[in-house]
Design a protein around this nucleic acid. Structure first.
Lengths: 162, 162
DNA sequence: ATGATATTGATAATGAAAATCAAAGTCGAA
DNA sequence: TTCGACTTTGATTTTCATTATCAATATCAT
């Protein structure tokens, strides 16, 4: 069954082999859990994995997440709070984020036109584009379902007092 | 003379007054130094200010930079390394960044078409757009002037071993 | 000028992420 | 399959950027 994950495992295995690194049980577990979560922190992944696989060290989580980033499977994000979140970028196409300052909601979107313009800008400035991060910050129009702050709201940047 | 800075000081003063905050000598000094630098870290700003104004505490730098962000004068950035950099966004129009993985060079650019598409995307997803961050990562085409790594290179995300 | 309130500075505290290192696991070659 | 060189893990400590603390000081509306 788990074809999705198997594909990733194979990919990971190949990537590791290329670099003379080893496929360990821990790396499989972390990859598996990582693929099931979006914008997750190392600590949160640690907690989650701990439920079924006791004693997979936090250090290993950090190491593996960094490894996944180096292999192009994951990407680091900083959404205003002080914790780094990790995001799967391999099988989901380049996707960008909308973040609500008030309730912390994160919506993903894609825009091929923007992607295209990014390529143009990189080219124009003498860069070979490999990757990008686009984050749009603002507020939900639907105030009803927003008001209740989920997380500590990021201080509104560039927003006049009103 | 220093009209540029004076304008900012006035702006800052107004913003502070609105919030019942006070315009202190330290805040003026930090604002002044901040406006003369791009992508600067709190620590670097501290060092720089120390040359002419001894004993302006590091904590004050942090506090003031965070304040400037809240007032919409500055914006935090995370360019791969572990230090937060601060960026002036008030009088320079929204500008985005190209970052070279190898040499760490940062180039600023503007693209009104992208900005426009961003507005559209936000609107489409029920967001009122306030702000954005766009970072393009890649490599300099001009390898000659790139090779020498200035800073610790960020591990290449999403780049296959080649 | 005064006093209520905000700010500073020096330092300690916090906490996310990285470093350490002995013990254990992985995997290619024999 | 076994061996052994090499990598990884886990538990912990360490690092260090950023924040909190709090007494002393500065600001500003009145």
């Amino acid at each position: 069954m788990a074809t999705e994950v198997d594909t990733e495992i194979t990919h990971l295995k190949n990537q590791l082999a290329q670099r003379h690194l080893k496929l360990t049980r821990q790396r499989e577990i972390v990859l598996d859990a990582f693929l099931k979560n979006d914008h997750i922190t190392a600590e949160a992944l640690y907690q989650q994995i701990a439920k079924t696989n006791a004693h997979l060290g936090l250090a290993t989580i950090y190491r593996t997440l960094n490894l996944l980033c180096e292999l192009g499977i994951g990407q680091e994000r900083h959404f205003g709070d002080n914790k780094t979140t990790f995001d799967n970028v391999l099988h989901k196409k380049h996707h960008d984020h909308l973040i609500c300052y008030k309730c912390g909601k994160i919506v993903e979107f894609e825009c091929s036109e923007i992607e295209k313009l990014q390529e143009e800008m990189a080219d124009k400035h003498g860069f070979i584009l490999q990757n990008h991060k686009l984050e749009l910050y603002g507020y939900c129009k639907d105030i009803e379902n927003c008001e209740k702050s989920i997380t500590t709201p990021t201080p509104a940047v560039g927003v006049p007092t009103s």
